[in-house]
């Protein structure tokens, strides 16, 4: 009897429209508040929040590319890799692809390399690339997948990390970098892929950022992780910083106005040394 009474009461409540209205409002309120909390958390974590919220699993814009995207030119497995020639140092970059951030953009603008493709932009970072960020490549705004699908590249140089020094840990940086490398390997199986280590910043910049992130201690840590990553992936790595450094292993003060970006003549030195050490 009690069960029956309770059952009837419940039925009455369920039939009450006001109760349903109340229920809907509570649900909407909770969802709205939950959305605000997520926004606030993203603002607090900054770059790392962007990294954490990035869809970097197999469903990313990069990973969604399929073999169908690869042009006919890539079905030809022969890529013409020109060896280093001191009489034509930039010949080694013939047909190459450079992937990077503002420093790579400086390389593009000032080094005089005019026989390669550049996929680079200011503030470029791994998560932006994996999220499908488009940049101007030979007059078209395209993503990394579309850039990799353009043609077969004999050499691909990847230089990323300066803009990720502020991430909570290097683990996420390395994880996402690994995803990018996997995609490059998949789309460009015949390319020689080079992980370029980060060029240090000037001593004055590093000291100024001692309590921050854009300092040479952090760069050194990231470079160790990059070496490890390259070795695990069976890829080559290059450290092009030797002629750019002072006696303490910092970027020469005279090489930069802000401690990070290079003056024109030093972009040329970087390019020439990179060509020389490419193997």
């Amino acid at each position: 009897m009690n069960l029956e009474k309770n059952g009837n009461k419940t039925l009455k409540l369920l039939k009450n429209p006001k109760l349903w209205i109340l229920f809907v409002f509570i649900v909407i309120l909770i969802m709205t508040l939950a959305g605000r909390c997520t926004d606030l958390r993203s603002q607090e974590t900054g770059n790392t929040g962007a990294a954490e919220n990035t869809a970097v699993a197999e469903n990313t814009a990069v990973a969604e590319s399929t073999d169908n995207d690869i042009s006919d030119s890539q079905s030809d497995n022969k890529v013409n890799r020109i060896p280093y020639d001191p009489n034509n140092p930039y010949g080694v970059f013939e047909g190459a692809l450079f992937i990077g951030d503002s420093r790579t953009e400086g390389l593009r603008v000032y080094s005089g390399i005019d026989n390669a493709v550049f996929f680079c932009a200011k503030s470029m970072s791994i998560d932006k690339i994996l999220n499908g960020k488009k940049v101007n490549v030979n007059g078209s705004n395209i993503s990394i997948s579309e850039t990799l699908a353009l043609k077969a590249y004999p050499r691909i140089y990847v230089c990323l990390g300066i803009n990720e020094l502020g991430w909570n840990s290097s683990d996420e940086f390395i994880r996402q970098y690994g995803i990018l490398l996997d995609e490059i390997i998949k789309q460009q199986p015949d390319a020689d892929i080079y992980v370029e280590l980060l060029i240090p910043v000037t001593a004055s910049k590093s000291e100024k950022e001692a309590g921050g992130v854009v300092n040479n201690t952090r760069i050194y840590e990231y470079n160790l992780r990059l070496v490890d990553l390259a070795e695990k992936k069976g890829l080559k790595y290059l450290n092009p910083d030797q002629p750019l450094l002072d006696e303490n292993g910092c970027l020469k003060e005279e090489a930069s106005t802000d401690g990070v970006h290079l003056l024109r003549e030093y972009y040329i030195i970087w390019a020439e040394h990179l060509a020389q050490i490419t193997y």
Binding site: I21, L22, F25, I28, L29, T32, R36
Partner: peptide
């Protein structure tokens, strides 16, 4: 209750 919740919702949104 309905009035209070509605007002809260409006303010939040």
């Amino acid at each position: 209750l309905i009035v209070i919740l509605t007002l809260t919702l409006i303010i939040t949104m």
